[in-house]
Design a protein around this nucleic acid. Structure first.
Lengths: 215, 215
DNA sequence: TGGATATCGATATTGTAATACTGATAAAAT
DNA sequence: ATTTTATCAGTATTACAATATCGATATCCA
């Protein structure tokens, strides 16, 4: 059973951590776990964990003991859609694109990249990590035929908007965007930006502080 | 000249977008830009943009016109450390690790991965994308000798803490962690988590909402 | 059996980031 | 020259996520 609610983005992003933590706990043979224990493991506030759990889990916790691990795992996996995989296509078979195609981990997270697209004649019709690369012109046809709703953008920033437009025309409703640009899309289409440069910025600032302190 | 302040993580993560936007503006031959224009381009609030700029830029804006594009670019690049590259090492030469090694874009963001490490005998001593792969045992020595302060973790979650410990012992002060686990490190070491599963969770939730609406 | 304790769940408080508001200022228009 | 307008910069407000508090309850231990 799945609760039909929407989490905040922050709460949602904590879920995979809960799941990872719970699986580890389960591996150790533990069947009941408290929100406090999870919080300690993940360096989070215990009330926050309890709140997150209560948002999407039908399970109630028992005072003094906690929650049943299996039920939590099942509830979270259900909510995150890990049990019914989403098919996706990827555009831009560069180094990053290839890495994503080759990342078998994604299947565990309910994502299945079924095909890739590019404009480079040398790559088109090749098979990379078991996935065929098509010419970009075939995108719309394939998406409509296969009812694909997730598109991944791993092209350079200057071509990203163009790809996004093609996506929208092909019925894509959720875009995973690795290009450093804010895409313009209709309201009903979600863009999840993966911003590696932003992460580097955070690292850089910290490093600068550290160096300044020790100089 | 660089302002010696700390931005919030959110503000910091907007900086690469400002930069990308400003470079595009500059390419179009525009020399002065208003915070309002940037905000519109990036779908942000104009006051927010102005505040972010004022935090790290010595430049003052002129009413009715805006800011000098070149000065903004220089200030942001300086702040993000794009002009003096940071050397980094990477542990875990799987599909993701290889992708990061091969991503020449990082140099633009001031990151230079100088070497990689793994435990797989078949990979050790190979050269991947111009970077040599060493046995993990050589990590500490190399880091200390080369004064490396940034470490990238692309190993499976179960080995990530072990790698992090090695990093800490080797003088690493900032860790870019692609494993789905919260690492325990001393206070002065920063961990930037790159959580691809979390992004997928966001996509999944949106898709579920879309499907529910149209059923 | 009774008291101590850990946890739950609900509510209140806090803290912080984003947004709105206000007056000042420089450029453009009349 | 004067008015209008777009923008800046500082302050106030709002919104929301994270945290703290409190009573209730189930388990453990004496």
């Amino acid at each position: 059973m799945k609760k039909d609610v929407n989490l905040t983005v922050q709460a949602l992003q904590r879920m995979p951590y809960y799941l990872q933590c719970l699986r580890k706990v389960k591996e150790n043979g533990i069947q009941i776990v408290s929100a406090t224990a999870i919080a300690n493991e993940l360096n989070l506030n215990d009330v926050l964990v309890r709140k997150d759990i209560s948002m999407i889990c039908t399970t109630k916790g028992k005072p003094k003991t906690g929650f049943i691990v299996d039920e939590l795992i099942e509830n979270i996996e259900d909510y995150l859609g890990y049990n019914n995989t989403m098919d996706a296509i990827l555009v831009g078979v560069g180094s990053l694109g290839k890495a994503l195609l080759g990342n078998s981990e994604f299947n565990k997270f309910g994502l299945n990249i079924i095909a890739a697209f590019d404009i480079d004649e040398d790559i088109i019709n090749q098979v990379i990590c078991g996935k065929k690369v098509f010419a970009i012109e075939k995108l719309q046809n394939l998406c409509e035929r296969m009812h694909i709703h997730i598109g991944i953008i791993t092209v350079p920033a200057e071509f990203a908007q163009e790809v996004a437009d093609k996506f929208v025309n092909s019925g894509i409703k959720a875009i995973w965007n690795f290009a450093l640009i804010k895409l313009s899309v209709p309201e009903d289409v979600l863009v999840q930006n993966e911003n590696l440069a932003a992460s580097l910025a955070v690292l850089s600032q910290h490093l600068r502080n550290e160096m300044d302190e020790n100089k």
